[in-house]
Computed example of a mutant assay.
Amino acid sequence: MRIKLAHSPDADDAYMFYGIASGAVKLPAPYVEFLADIETLNRLALAELLDVTAVSAHALAYACDKYYVLRVGASMGDGYGPVVVSRGGEVKHVAVPGRYTTAALLLQLAMPGVKTVEIPFDKILEAVAAGVVDAGVVIHEGQITYHRAGLKKVVDLGEWWLRETGLPTPLGLDVVRSALGREFAEQAAKALSESIKYADAHREEALRYAQRFSRGLSIEETARFVDMYVNHYTRDMGPKGEKAISTLLEMANERGLTPPCKPVIV
């Protein structure tokens, strides 16, 4: 059996999976790799078509009984996160990078009065700059490059989340399909942990590899972005990270935005 391993083609995910991609770290089973934007991965996971994959914390609410959550590999912002940007002026229509992204959920929680429009994440800056929408929620490298498009920050949703909860911002998670069993999930978690350790031990070459997925960032900017989202919560989310996930899902459910979910973390 070949498992279907998926993650986003982004610098932070590339860094995390460098040990596996380089062949230095082995997964518990042979695999085929599939790279796609996070919203595509979310939708495939909701259909239970991926075995080991990155998903948005928001999407987990709709696949709670289908996947184990790994305590390693999470993308959590420590007082920072997706950024709402605009040209200035009144904000009515805001572009989001997908219905099931955590960015979209955080926007709904922080700015419930706005209307959202789904636009691929790599077109949001262009849409805002062109005036197609009033504002947009930027993720990935857009969080540190939006100034280049002449745009201004309306709100950093990670800063908002920290003020509201005192917790890190739970954005992306790595999950394993429950049908594969808890033991397999634990083995996958160990392999991913070893992959990150390998990247840390070979940082320069891991960053060069990650830069290939950074869509125009310099090596210094790639390192900055990787360090934002491959942090101590990534290596082990710990009790604070677990609480961040449960708080997000509970808050969303209480406001009628998602179904209830009590994730199983391994």
Rank of each mutant, 00 (worst) to 15 (best):
T116I: 15
G256H: 06
R43A: 10
K240C: 01
G19E: 02
L106E: 07
I219A: 04
A63C: 03
G158H: 05
V52L: 13
I124D: 02
S246C: 03
N253M: 01
I119Y: 02
N253V: 01
V32M: 01
A36F: 12
G150A: 12
Q108H: 07
K66E: 01
G256W: 08
M76R: 04
M228L: 13
P97Q: 09
A110N: 06
V132K: 13
T53Q: 07
G216H: 02
K123S: 09
A6L: 14
I245N: 00
A14D: 13
A74G: 14
T258P: 00
I196V: 13
R235Y: 10
P28K: 10
L207Y: 06
M228H: 07
A210C: 10
T102D: 02
A149T: 14
V155P: 06
H147K: 13
A95N: 03
D10V: 15
A206D: 08
D174A: 05
K152R: 14
L249W: 00
G79C: 04
Y31K: 08
G23T: 15
V226Y: 03
Q211W: 01
A59M: 15
I245Y: 00
R255F: 02
L44A: 15
K66N: 03
V114N: 05
L70D: 09
V266C: 05
R224D: 05
K92C: 01
A110H: 04
V83T: 13
L44D: 15
E126S: 11
V83E: 06
H7Y: 13
G79L: 06
T102M: 01
A199D: 08
K152C: 02
V264F: 03
L125Q: 04
P170N: 04
Q211N: 13
H147D: 14
Y198A: 08
I20C: 06
V230T: 07
V117F: 03
V138G: 00
K115A: 12
E90V: 15
Y100I: 11
R2Q: 10
Y198S: 03
A54D: 09
G73F: 01
T222P: 03
R215Y: 14
S195A: 15
K66I: 01
G158A: 14
A11P: 08
V25G: 04
E118W: 06
N231D: 06
R148D: 10
T247V: 12
S246I: 08
E242R: 08
L35W: 05
L125D: 08
A149W: 12
K240T: 12
G19K: 02
E194Y: 00
A244P: 00
H140N: 09
Q211D: 10
L60K: 06
V114C: 06
M228A: 04
P97D: 06
P259T: 00
D37H: 07
A179L: 12
N231E: 09
G79I: 11
T169S: 10
T102I: 03
I124Y: 07
E242A: 05
L109N: 07
A244F: 04
R163F: 11
R255P: 00
T40Q: 11
A185P: 12
L249M: 00
R215V: 12
A206I: 13
G216W: 03
L50Y: 13
T234Y: 08
S218K: 02
K152Q: 11
Q211T: 14
C64D: 01
G88E: 05
V128G: 05
S178C: 12
L257H: 05
G77P: 12
P120L: 11
